[in-house]
Design a protein around this nucleic acid. Structure first.
Lengths: 199, 199
DNA sequence: TTAAAATTTGACAGTAACTATCAAAATAAA
DNA sequence: TTTATTTTGATAGTTACTGTCAAATTTTAA
């Protein structure tokens, strides 16, 4: 099987991906019905008709069944699609907003539900924040490339930190005001950062 | 015992605080010697000569034995000691720096060791980030009071988010460059935020 | 189509972080 | 000292997670 991404392999992986998505669906439903902590991995596995062993083969920890997503490539694409005439902060801002705008209503509903769960369950919140750390690194790399610096440049790191911090503050607020428009909240917050955090 | 903080009660609580500090000491030592995950709560309890039950009575989770600290009041005091002529961001910046400057060399050494452990162990990192969320709320409250707005004001929240985000980026960097001066790193990072995140 | 090889799965056993409970021990109040 | 209150530790149980291995499945080769 030297040709790395053979059609067969693609099939195999696609099947796996489908199974994982099913597990995630069942998990989200159970979390909604019973609460996160009251739902055991065993129950999720049973609902998805897999063994607990397989669950942990798919997801290294219980939290991951809720937290795993594929937004990174979306963000990267959205960022790199921004015209180079924009400042880095403007580019990040528009990338976020356009990435959200590209989501369907169904996706957005799931994002909202996930966000509420994440913020309200300490373990999930902690793990999600940990993930944001990687997103921070990602932003640092994207911005570094754009402005021709190294990702560990102090200014670049600080930039990425501030952006992620603003994201966190929006996430926390949104969880308690789910009727607000997430994209709008984020857009406004980043515009304030752009304006030098006026008070 | 109507007079709430009787001397006797103070004694009792002081004793407890001392016991807890001893547990933390032993835990840190064991983490250093064996690694965080390889150290069991049972071992910590044994070293500190308490029962595992008591450990969990002191610290709700294993992580807390490393993460619990009392820097909040220090930060509050440092912030409120800043002259009102300073901008909120300047005040926060100086508050952080002066709070760090007030620490002894021993304290700083522990901070460094803790920081390295926290950043390198995912569970600790996640829990620490979760704690920073509370610090974010604290900053929002302090700043809100200072500028006469509500803590959930959008500008205030965004401000606090950016500040915490910058803190996180510094923490992550410092863990991998422990020879750097933490206060200086933070001071520079916050100055960049003040300058509008130049790139 | 069938046989061999590689991968995935599930069953089983085990560890360690917690939780709940309750009687014994230490401490405070009377 | 005696009584009341709080703190502790022992015990038992739950659940997230890990490692191992044979059975089942799937892929490749014949």
């Amino acid at each position: 099987m030297s040709p790395e991404d053979k059609r067969t392999m693609g099939l195999r992986e696609r099947k796996k991906a489908k199974a994982m998505a099913a597990v995630q669906m069942h998990a989200l439903r159970l979390f909604r019905e019973l609460g996160y902590n009251a739902t055991t991995v065993e129950q999720i596995a049973e609902a998805a008709e897999i063994s607990p062993s397989t669950f942990f083969r798919y997801f290294p920890a219980k939290e991951d069944v809720l937290l795993r997503d594929n937004y990174d490539p979306v963000l990267v694409a959205a960022f790199e699609a921004q015209p180079s005439s924009l400042s880095p902060l403007q580019a990040v801002r528009r990338a976020f907003v356009s990435a959200i705008a590209d989501m369907s209503a169904d996706e957005l509903a799931i994002v909202r539900e996930r966000d509420q769960l994440i913020v309200s369950v300490p373990e999930l919140r902690a793990a999600a924040l940990n993930n944001l750390t990687q997103t921070m690194q990602l932003i640092a790399e994207l911005v570094a490339k754009r402005v021709g610096r190294k990702p560990d440049d102090a200014a670049v790191r600080t930039f990425a930190g501030a952006v992620i911090g603003v994201n966190i503050s929006v996430m926390l607020y949104y969880a308690e005001h789910p009727d607000a428009d997430f994209a709008e909240l984020l857009d406004e917050a980043l515009s304030k950062l752009e304006a030098g955090l006026p008070l």
